[in-house]
């Protein structure tokens, strides 16, 4: 947990301190409102199947935009307009993990969705959200390997 990006750790700590479900939900909605779909300069619809987030019923697609310094910005498309949870997590992953060193991104366990969303998630919702993190990890690992660096 110490190795994950600082902003994500801070966010996890903040969510962990929330005892009220409504407060957690409102915070996540605020994140969903901040979601910015992947710009056409990075990827345009129809998106490639290789970018599809596995197990995500919100039809999310994940992309990595190279940044100066060799890190990545994580971008998402969420095709289902009712995919609010996917939009919230997309915004969180973009804002807390973009620009972070690969080893810190790869230190993020998909199970962090429970810390953010709580334990009352259905099987399907859990799988989709974890799939988004798995995609970020896969994009990061692929980028690091292509760059010749050991992730």
């Amino acid at each position: 947990m110490d190795r994950i990006p600082d902003r994500l750790r801070d966010l996890v700590d903040a969510f962990s301190a929330m005892e009220d479900r409504a407060e957690r939900v409102q915070e996540l909605i605020a994140w969903a409102d901040r979601f910015e779909p992947v710009p056409a300069s990075v990827a345009a619809s129809p998106y490639p199947e290789a970018a599809r987030v596995p197990a995500c019923e919100s039809e999310a697609f994940a992309f990595a935009e190279p940044l100066a310094g060799g890190t990545l910005r994580y971008r998402f498309a969420v095709e289902n307009p009712q995919g609010v949870s996917a939009m919230a997590l997309a915004a969180i992953l973009d804002e807390t993990m973009s620009g972070q060193p690969a080893e810190r991104v790869l230190a993020v366990d998909p199970g962090v969705v429970y810390e953010l969303f709580g334990r009352e998630l259905s099987m399907g919702k859990t799988a989709g959200l974890m799939g988004m993190i798995q995609m970020v990890r896969a994009l990061t690992r692929r980028h690091a390997e292509a760059a010749g660096a050991k992730p």
Binding site: A22, V25, Q26, L28, I29, A32, Q82, G83, V84, S85, A88, F117, G118, E120, L121, S122, G124, K125
Partner: peptide, 9 residues
């Protein structure tokens, strides 16, 4: 709903 955020959204 299944999605816990949908109602609040």
């Amino acid at each position: 709903d299944e999605d816990p955020l949908l109602y609040a959204a």
